[in-house]
Simulated assay, not measured.
Amino acid sequence: MRRLLDLRIVRWELKTLYIVVAWIVGFVVADLLRSIGTSAVVVEVANALTTFVPFALAVRIFRGSDEPVEPPRAWWRMTAWPALSRRLGILFAVLTVFGVLGLVLAAAGVDAYQAMGDGGATIFVSSALQFAVLAFLYLNSAVRMKHLGITKPRPLRLKPTMKL
Rank of each mutant, 00 (worst) to 15 (best):
Y113V: 08
V25D: 02
W75G: 14
W75A: 12
V100C: 01
W12Q: 15
V21F: 05
K15G: 00
A83N: 09
I123L: 15
K159P: 08
T161G: 11
L129Q: 00
L158Q: 14
P54C: 00
D6W: 12
L156M: 10
S127V: 09
L57C: 02
A121L: 13
P153V: 10
P160E: 14
L84C: 03
L84R: 12
G102N: 11
L148K: 02
P72G: 07
S126G: 13
A142N: 03
L49C: 09
R11A: 09
Y138N: 15
W12M: 15
L137S: 10
A30R: 09
R34C: 02
A46D: 06
S127W: 13
P160L: 11
E44Y: 10
E44D: 11
A108L: 12
D111Q: 12
K146S: 15
Y113D: 02
A108Y: 08
I24E: 02
E13P: 02
K163T: 15
D118T: 14
P54N: 01
F27E: 08
V94A: 10
I61H: 00
R63P: 01
F52D: 00
A83C: 05
K159F: 10
R77N: 01
A56L: 15
V125T: 06
D111T: 14
T161V: 15
V110A: 09
E70I: 07
R34S: 07
L84Y: 07
D111M: 11
T50P: 04
M145T: 04
R154W: 04
A142D: 09
L32M: 13
L129H: 03
V29E: 02
G26Q: 07
A80S: 08
S85L: 06
P155N: 08
L7S: 10
S65P: 12
G102L: 01
M78Y: 02
F55P: 00
P68C: 08
L139A: 06
L91K: 06
D118Q: 13
L148P: 01
A30S: 10
V97I: 13
V100W: 04
I19L: 11
V143R: 14
L32A: 15
A56W: 08
D118I: 11
L137R: 12
L17F: 10
E67A: 07
G102Q: 04
K15L: 00
S35V: 04
M1D: 13
D66L: 10
F136N: 03
G89H: 01
R77I: 04
R157E: 14
F55Q: 03
L158C: 09
L5M: 11
D66C: 12
V104D: 12
D111P: 11
Y113M: 12
V69D: 05
L88V: 07
M145V: 06
L5C: 03
G26D: 00
A80V: 02
F52I: 04
G99W: 06
F131H: 09
V100R: 03
L49D: 03
W12E: 15
L17C: 11
V94Y: 05
